[in-house]
Amino acid sequence: MRSILFALALLFCTPFAAFANTQETAAKDFVLELFERFREIYAPNNPDAEQQLLRYYDDNFDHQRIARFIFGSYIRRASQQQFERFSELLPKFVFGQISPQIEKYFSAENSATSIKITAVRPLKKQHVIVHTRYTGPQETEIRVRLRPNADVLKILDVQIAGISMLLAQRDLIGSMIKQNNGDLNAFLDQLKDEAETSGKANA
């Protein structure tokens, strides 16, 4: 009886274990590819860096989920048009904020130092966190949270030294909306200005 139960357990568990392994390998490969892309984008004298970054965001980040999370409870007040404008402006604004931090780890001057994958952890709802360690002048942990979307992995969050970029942007956007007394059109105008200003400052 025991051996039958064992055989049944083995039969049911093996596909799940295999799936988990496949997902882990896919997540590792995805993050290695991401870092390689960042190295190319942040290579010195790359005139097209901003556009390449935004294209990469479009293709590999789960932008709908990210936009909804960052907009937070204000999403209920927004019209479809306002949400679409927000989703469109968000990537440029976010990269204006976090680009200098990412660049620090992937620019040419730090290319000799390396980033290694240290762990891959599954979370609920098939989310996966890939832990990596940057061994540069200041050792830092960089984590990437991924989620399968139509069988393709997409980035949900990047956490540098334990700071979730998603959570940081959500607070910032919430504060900007409050400062505009909840007027979403005024907020979107400010977001547009900020996105353009930070883009220029980082250029």
Binding site: L123, R145, S164, L172, G174, S175, M176, Q179, A201, N202
Partner: peptide
């Protein structure tokens, strides 16, 4: 240089770091 509201940015960083320091690991983020 980059934040439109440095107060909120510093507060958020402090809170995230503090919660991790107190409760350990990546409790909040997970």
């Amino acid at each position: 240089r980059t934040s439109p509201d440095p107060y909120t940015s510093f507060r958020n960083i402090y809170q995230q770091r503090r919660r991790q320091f107190v409760f350990g690991g990546s409790y909040d983020l997970d």
